[in-house]
Design a protein around this nucleic acid. Structure first.
Lengths: 413, 413
DNA sequence: CACGTTTGTTAGTAAACCTTACGAACAAAC
DNA sequence: GTTTGTTCGTAAGGTTTACTAACAAACGTG
């Protein structure tokens, strides 16, 4: 192993080498949940004992990751595996540098004192990149727990096509230079349609079509790279703080997009365009003209530039202006509720999360959305539906990108 | 084994005994896809080699089931497992009576002639029951290939509550008496909200709330019983003929419901009420009053009684009446499209299926739905969306119920 | 008829997890 | 201070699973 390897990659060449991609999905996906297309009925693959091992390895890692330092015996009880098997798996994980022993447990209990073990949370860093903002590409060095360690950003200056790719390149390079800890992988949230191989099929804002971002960066930096749509990445971050298996994230910024997790698994969609609801028409009474040619698209009601422009037009001073601003926000919320109602109804969602500028979303808009949803769906079925603001604020894509890498590389989230 | 067992049940006491329910889901669900709640992230279970075995067993069965008679070597090539392993698995399946040898292959090829094997398609029958119609409970004895062997029905006579349960009892009893072949299990599609344990949480039309249908019937008939919502059952039947992993079924009858498969897995929803879209409000221009208290619910536009009443009011004779009838159907289709647009957009669905009276649905209504969907979603993302009529006609729930049993008991569909 | 091909089985091996058993280390009770 | 019971981690041995290697049987082909 060279010094570069030691600095940049995990100890093993491949932390989770999927012998058969299909089987690895079967086993790892329910624990993790990357955006690889879940192959289903017809061509399902075989499962070998070694795949079971891979799954159990991830299970141990997940247990430690989410419950923190504990003894091998604790992990055994939690997972249902025997102490013997846990010892074996943990030994392998320690050899790989993913788990460390922390010494003996302090508290006074009968019996032999436990040796605490934990995921070595300082062992790796993750590079997260957010390409969803219009003016700037943001990136961060993220710790295994999701904490932001270093930030960096690079002005986009309306760069498109190859120039934009080079900016991403430069940003990642700068971020890598900022950490001396081995890097587990690079996670990128991009606008547009991204396929499971990390090819940006189409991102009009960036002038990208069929840009093999994952391949290019993986080659350039010799690290695992995961790329997905920004909203789909965002919902991963939100999923961490939520205990629901069904989750819809509405990401409102320059455009409007959604990320969706159903049954604990991210939804990608037949054409990899799941969540692209910005250009769904709302209501049956027309609406503002949209750049896409239609009228009354969700974006025309809800996109931040539209909202701010409309609020500015309503004026800043006086009671009448305040009331007008409230009406604007309320109407936007109502429109969102109208689009969400069929989705919430069809999927019987238990949680919807809003992400975007809190000063716009977290007030009359939020209230109106809740209100509209209640009025337009069957209350009996959707009684426990929660609509809440994101807890991740601005960093939702960065942290989601980290979660994506964590999922993809370690089967942990 | 008693004679009754031999006649009613599979040869083994439990064809697919899930040692750990969670692990069985992990392994069998992608192949099968029952309506058991897919447990996800946090409490994922261990996977033992024996679970891998269970999965591979189902894989062999699935291969034989869908590709028909073939040699062990063929199955080995298809699944990626070795001939040795396949021989072993097949031996077990033959011992269980699920697979039979058909003699040597006829065609002339070099090498030792192959012994053909196949699922013993005559080994079991399945009881399918459809409780979704308003006036009658329908049932059938269904073959493993989904063919209807015997039919029966029982007039509901507005029975509700316990009386309705007893009718189901009687219907199943009569169906069981009609076959002397061992029965693999009983599948039931019920209106309302059904939880994964087969408890009908709420079915207003039948006056049911928290009726433990699965438990009662399983006890009464000593057979595996699977119960789910009628539309959710229906989509299973449709999934067989479709090669898509994402599928939405809209079932239009006395009410309007939907069944949804995403990533090859049925969607149940947080409150087990996924697909309950009948009372989602359509559009922003009001609409007919609904029994639920709201106005403009999807059902008020689309439910068969409403449609037929409106068509009758338009008159039967003359060109003007025909045009008015067309308008009514077109408006209904448009309303359906309005509700579907956000769902299709959010999930990037590739296939939507309509089930119900073809004379109402398969014409102007269908056209208007397609048209509306196209006008209200982003064409670029949903280019390959197909909206088609069901191929199952009236038997969709019966056959879906059979698929559900097949899935649940054998991991096959 | 020799040869290559294909099938299905036998025998042995490797991996994974289990059960059983044990030593070490501790608290609590006597 | 000793005994008792508990808990932890490990060792040894067994079972299950699927693999590789090898082979006999049965067939077409040249």
């Amino acid at each position: 192993m060279t010094a570069t390897d030691a600095q940049r990659g995990p100890v093993t060449t491949e932390p989770t080498p999927p012998t058969s991609p299909v089987a690895s999905e079967l086993l790892a996906a329910p624990v993790a949940g990357t955006f690889s297309r879940s192959r289903a009925l017809r061509p399902t693959g075989k499962v070998l004992p070694e795949h079971a091992r891979t799954h159990n390895r991830a299970l141990v890692l997940q247990t430690l990751y989410s419950a923190g330092p504990q003894s091998r015996a604790d992990v055994a009880r939690e997972t249902g595996l025997t102490r013997v098997t846990i010892s074996d798996l943990v030994a392998a994980l320690i050899a790989e540098g993913l788990v460390i022993e922390l010494g003996q447990r302090e508290d006074a209990r009968p019996g032999k004192p436990a040796t605490l073990i934990d995921v070595d949370r300082g062992a790796f860093h993750i590079i997260g990149v957010d390409l969803s903002e219009h003016e700037v590409f943001r990136g961060a060095v993220v710790g295994l727990d999701g904490q932001i360690i270093e930030r960096d950003e690079i002005a986009r200056d309306a760069a498109t096509g190859e120039a934009a790719v080079l900016l991403v390149d430069r940003l990642v390079e700068r971020l890598l230079a900022r950490t001396s800890t081995p890097v587990l992988g690079i996670g990128i949230g991009s606008p547009g349609v991204v396929d499971p191989l990390g090819v940006v099929r189409s991102a009009p804002n960036l002038g990208w079509s069929d840009v093999a971002l994952q391949e290019r960066l993986a080659e350039r930096f010799a690290l695992p790279v995961h790329v997905a749509n920004d909203a789909n990445v965002g919902v991963l971050a939100e999923h961490g703080s939520s205990h629901h298996d069904d989750l819809l994230l509405i990401k409102i910024g320059h455009g409007v997009g959604a990320g969706l997790i159903i049954g604990g698994r991210p939804v990608v969609g037949g054409g990899f365009a799941a969540g692209e609801i910005g250009h769904v028409v709302v209501g049956t009474d027309g609406g503002p003209r949209c750049a896409c040619g239609k009228a009354g698209c969700l974006e025309t009601w809800l996109a931040v530039p539209r909202l701010t422009a409309r609020l500015a037009a309503a004026g800043a001073q006086g009671e009448a202006a305040a009331s007008a601003r409230d009406d604007i926000l309320r109407e936007a919320g109502r429109r969102l509720g109208i689009v969400l109602a069929p989705v919430v109804g069809a999927l019987n969602l238990s949680e919807v999360v809003l992400s975007g500028p809190a000063e716009l979303l977290d007030g009359p808009l939020h209230e109106a959305t809740v209100d509209t949803l209640r009025k337009r769906t069957m209350a009996e079925f959707n009684r426990d539906l929660r609509l809440r603001m994101s807890e991740q604020a601005e960093d939702i894509v960065l942290r989601g990108a980290a979660v994506m890498v964590l999922s993809g590389q370690l089967g942990v989230s």
